[in-house]
Amino acid sequence: MRSIDHLVMPFDALGAARQWFLGLGFVVAPEAAHPFGTGNACVFLADGRYIEPLSIVDPAAYDAAKDEGHLFIERDAALRNLPDRPAISGIAFRSDDALADREQLLDEEAGEEGLVEFGRTMRLPDGGSAELSFRLAFAAIHAADAPSFFYCEARQTAKPDRSSLTTHPNGATGMAGVTIKVEDPEMFRDYLASVADSRVQENGDDDWTIPLDGGRLDVVAGGSTPLAIASLTVTVADLAFAKKFWEGQGVAYSESADGVAIACPNGLGAIRFIEERS
């Protein structure tokens, strides 16, 4: 059973991403650059998961990586250039051994041969820095406009202290799950079960849930593409408090039975907020 590590959200500019997340009441980490032309300004949550707003910060390096068949960049470019771009382009699952994860996926006919390995410097709020190193393995995709599912192994031995980045004015505490829309649920049943290394639980009416370690994937029928990430669900300590915060910031939201949803500005999709339950 997999655990979500982070979600990728493509933005045209990190400054716009930062302002939007700050307006929602999140603390945003300092910007960081990847060696293949992208950069991020992450939102870290107290449960160890995070949201990764991603932009192109070095077009020459980005184009070179794409030309070289860099899996992460190829997939980012395919979704970033869609007329109806998804707000959430990928799910990274936590990995202790990306090589073993790749072999498992290949055995289940759900994986890619290619790997991505890179290092980068993380700037810390106190002015210090930490050197990070990652290895990524990838699940196969069924279409160019499908989201990317991959496995992120953090290879550095020292863990950066992000505690100052995880106390958010809106009271956000963690990531409860992700909702995926599919045109034909049966087509993706085995694939998504392999990706999550978990079993499907039927909910009726072609909707089902795949339990994760510390979360869930909710799969619902519908949408205009074969498979898309419709929303991310974030937990907050006090939903009434969060709503008052957003009202004070002029942030529009829509209510549902168990929470609220805020539409993403970078594409099709939303972030849902529910109250954390002890």
Rank of each mutant, 00 (worst) to 15 (best):
F134I: 01
V116F: 03
F138T: 09
A140T: 13
G111L: 01
F118L: 09
T166D: 02
A100E: 14
A110C: 14
S129E: 09
L165D: 02
T157S: 10
E108F: 11
S164L: 12
S164Y: 04
E112Y: 00
T157K: 12
G128I: 00
R155I: 00
C152Q: 02
A144C: 06
G111R: 05
L106G: 11
D145P: 03
R123E: 05
R120Q: 12
R135Y: 06
A137F: 06
C152D: 03
S129N: 06
I141F: 13
M122H: 00
G128T: 04
E108M: 13
R123T: 02
E109P: 00
G111H: 04
E153M: 10
I141H: 10
A110D: 10
T166S: 06
R162L: 15
F118W: 07
Q104N: 10
F134L: 07
F118A: 09
G114K: 13
E131A: 13
R155Q: 05
F149M: 02
E113Q: 14
A137P: 06
G111V: 04
P160G: 09
D126E: 07
S133P: 03
P147C: 02
S129R: 11
A100T: 12
T121L: 08
F134S: 02
F149W: 03
A146G: 03
D107F: 10
A144S: 14
D101P: 11
H142F: 14
F138D: 05
G127L: 09
A100G: 06
Q156I: 01
G127F: 04
E117D: 08
S163T: 14
E113I: 04
S148M: 05
A110R: 05
R155A: 04
E153C: 12
S129L: 02
D161T: 08
A130L: 08
R102P: 07
Q104W: 11
H142G: 15
F150P: 05
P147G: 00
R135W: 09
D107Q: 14
R162H: 12
S133F: 07
R120A: 10
E109H: 09
F149Y: 14
A139M: 09
D101M: 10
A144Q: 13
S129A: 11
S129T: 10
G119Y: 01
E113Y: 05
A100S: 14
E113L: 07
E153H: 15
A100V: 09
F149T: 01
G127T: 09
D161H: 09
L124T: 08
F149N: 04
S163D: 09
E109S: 06
D101F: 12
Y151H: 04
T121E: 15
E112G: 00
L124A: 04
E113M: 07
D145V: 01
L136K: 01
E103G: 07
L106E: 07
R123H: 04
G111E: 05
A146T: 05
A100R: 15
D145A: 03
T121Q: 12
A139H: 04
D145I: 00
Q156G: 05
A140M: 08
E153K: 09
R162T: 10
E109C: 01
L115M: 15
G111P: 11
T121V: 15
L105F: 13
T121S: 11
D126Y: 02
E109G: 00
V116Q: 12
A139Q: 08
G128Y: 01
P125N: 07
C152A: 02
